[in-house]
Simulated scan of single mutants.
Amino acid sequence: MESHVAFNYQQQVEQIRNQMQCDFVALALVQSEDRHFQIRWEYASGNISQRFKRIVLQSGKGVAGIVFKTGKPIFAPVAHEYCEKDNLYNYPIILAEQLESFAAVPLFKYNRVKGIVIAGCRSKGCMSEEKFKLLKSLVAPTFGPYYSEELTGN
């Protein structure tokens, strides 16, 4: 068992939602290589259903898959504008939680994306640039063994 098990991820997700004053926050964790790096939303606060638990993504698919593949955060003050470049059904967390605006940031461990945190609102324009910055600042100290910036070594 890894040391991160001692962390109460559910409590951390709820704390971020309260501090950001948004409708929904969730944490997706990347599964091991033998599970083909599947990405699953495992913890959530403010969710309207349990559908998020059934979402399984691969690299490059959905919000979590894109953040995993690129290692870069996503800021979408208008979810439908961001998602329409493909199809809204390729973004199941946005549909399941009826998000109108959201931001997602990667969590790194050993210089690889190991988790993704999404924060979203069910009203248009609620996810502001200030909230996006707040999310990025909250993620690093909140999730213990993870960090929010990719380390660059020489």
Rank of each mutant, 00 (worst) to 15 (best):
N87F: 05
G115R: 00
A64E: 02
L99G: 09
G71Y: 04
P106M: 09
K85G: 06
V67D: 09
G125H: 11
Q31G: 06
S101R: 00
F24T: 02
A103C: 15
I118L: 13
A26Y: 00
V117Y: 04
Q10S: 14
Q31S: 13
S101L: 03
E33L: 11
F37T: 01
K61H: 10
K72M: 12
L27T: 05
F68S: 07
I74A: 01
G125E: 10
V67H: 09
L27D: 00
I116A: 04
C22R: 00
N90D: 15
A6W: 09
R112D: 06
G60K: 07
E129D: 07
E42I: 02
E97G: 12
I116R: 04
I16T: 01
I94K: 05
G65W: 10
A44P: 08
R40T: 07
C126Q: 12
F108M: 05
P73Y: 07
E97Q: 14
S3A: 12
C22Y: 01
S3W: 11
E129Y: 13
K114G: 05
R122Q: 12
V117L: 12
A119F: 10
I116V: 15
K85S: 14
V78C: 05
V117D: 08
R17V: 02
V63F: 02
R17K: 15
P106G: 02
Q19W: 00
Q11V: 04
K124I: 13
L88H: 03
I48S: 09
G46R: 08
H36C: 03
L134P: 01
V25H: 05
A96L: 02
R17L: 08
N87L: 03
Y89D: 10
R112N: 10
V25S: 06
H80Y: 10
I55R: 01
H80E: 11
V78G: 00
D86E: 11
V67G: 09
I93M: 09
K85M: 07
A104I: 00
L88A: 09
R112L: 10
F24L: 03
V13I: 15
E42Y: 03
G71L: 08
Q11L: 12
S3I: 14
E42T: 12
G60F: 03
I55F: 08
L88G: 02
V13C: 03
K72I: 04
Q19T: 11
V67Y: 10
Q38R: 14
I66V: 14
Q10K: 10
E100W: 02
E100H: 12
Q15T: 11
F102I: 00
G65K: 04
F132Y: 15
P77V: 08
Q19K: 15
Y110N: 14
N18E: 13
G46F: 01
I66F: 03
H36I: 01
Y89F: 09
A119K: 03
K61V: 09
R40E: 09
Q31Y: 05
Q10A: 12
K133T: 09
F108Q: 03
T70W: 02
V56G: 01
P73Q: 02
G60T: 05
F68K: 10
Q21C: 04
S3Q: 12
V105E: 07
S45K: 04
F108W: 14
R51I: 08
G65A: 10
H80C: 04
Y110A: 13
V5G: 02
Q21W: 01
L57D: 03
G62Q: 08
S101F: 01
A64M: 06
E33Q: 13
L134A: 14
N111H: 08
I116P: 01
